[in-house]
Design a protein around this nucleic acid. Structure first.
Lengths: 210, 210
DNA sequence: TAGACTCTGTAACAAATGTTACTATACTTT
DNA sequence: AAAGTATAGTAACATTTGTTACAGAGTCTA
């Protein structure tokens, strides 16, 4: 069995299930910045993240965008889950934030395992729960926080996800994620720099202390 | 078997399951404006809505509030679902919007039925899916719409849920749901009245044409 | 190296939303 | 009926966020 699978899901799933996953799952490594899922698309397999991070974005009909949350290793996409179960189409866009390694599980199997393995059932429900919580967390941020606080939270989150205190993004990219304008982000970042919390450079932001 | 159960879930669940629900479920009728679930609370049973409507509200530590969505007959609370499965505590507040009749299902049974009945499994997953979609819909509204559009959407939704073109609420109550101030709501409502879309009265709003 | 292009900084202004304060009216209670 | 309370209307103003415009600095390419 591939070591990566064992490392990431070994304490979550029983041995038989791990063997099944290893048998029917397809391993895939996807480069950074690749769009995995688009709004309106249907999926026939479900991804388990082994390594890396995926950015889940809401995109409406006018092309307005907003970052919903990040997925990391050990996570799966709840939207894909329910798309698989119910044959619904996707309402979100998924882009690899870093290079990402996935195991793709065919729908047929994931349905079968629901009745067969308690640990799998648990994993699926936990995933739904976590995604619902993250959606609510996003709602909290947009509804209750001002843009400066949202930006701060975003920067913290980003350093955690990328395991790096240097954030390689333009102000425009950040503005898209937070659904605001570039000028607003530049303004607030400059304020953070003046407060000594970050260091601004072209195409990147170094976090000093948030 | 109670007719209401058959009427609302008859085409969703098989006969055996309906009989089981009827056997172990407890029927409850709750008056309007009653708080069913509070943030931080744990639940040991899961509600199926038979009649009426429930308002699901996010409430943060500072007491800030925001309406997430309404639940109607045929719905169940996904947050409660995952609370039951995972022993998590509630992150939301649930208040009856109208008088509501529920069937309460003990956790033990709902877990057992997951493996036993395909239709139940389906129902649970569909519920999660729908709640996730509604959370995303809420995110859309807060992120992409201005307050006047959000108010309009709110009024439309409210007439649908209550089956009544007269909305019995004060401006303050609406302001809480949309997490803004009373003055803002009064201002926008007055604008809608001037446009001939609504008629304002003390403690109530009559919808003319939205 | 000249020109094109991208990214950032900044000012000036516009629009949306939030706050405070005060008034009038309707309703409730004593 | 008088007093108190809740609700709504409105003005004036503050704050936050969004928009437009332009300049300068870095990067890329012919």
């Amino acid at each position: 069995m591939i070591q990566l699978l064992k490392d990431n899901y070994g304490n979550l799933f029983e041995k038989e299930l791990l063997l099944e996953i290893n048998g029917v799952g397809t391993f895939k490594t996807i480069p950074e910045g690749f769009t995995i899922i688009r709004p309106g698309s249907y999926t026939t397999s479900m991804p388990l993240i082994i390594e890396g991070a995926i950015k889940i974005i809401r995109e409406d009909a006018n092309g307005d965008e907003l970052l919903l949350y990040f997925l990391e290793k050990g996570d799966t996409c709840a939207m894909t889950l329910s798309c698989c179960f119910g044959q619904h189409k996707s309402e979100i866009k998924a882009i690899t934030e870093t290079e990402t390694t996935l195991i793709m599980i065919p729908i047929r199997k994931m349905e079968e395992w629901i009745t067969k393995y308690y640990s799998w059932r648990n994993f699926v429900f936990e995933s739904y729960h976590n995604r619902l919580l993250e959606a609510i967390e996003t709602i909290d941020s947009i509804a209750f926080l001002n843009m400066d606080e949202r930006l701060l939270k975003y920067l913290k989150n980003k350093t955690k996800i990328n395991q790096n205190t240097i954030i390689k993004n333009t102000h425009q990219e950040i503005a898209y994620d937070l659904h605001t304008s570039r000028v607003v982000i530049s303004r607030l970042l400059k304020k953070l720099e003046n407060e000594g919390k970050i260091q601004l450079n072209r195409n990147s932001i170094e976090i000093i202390s948030l």
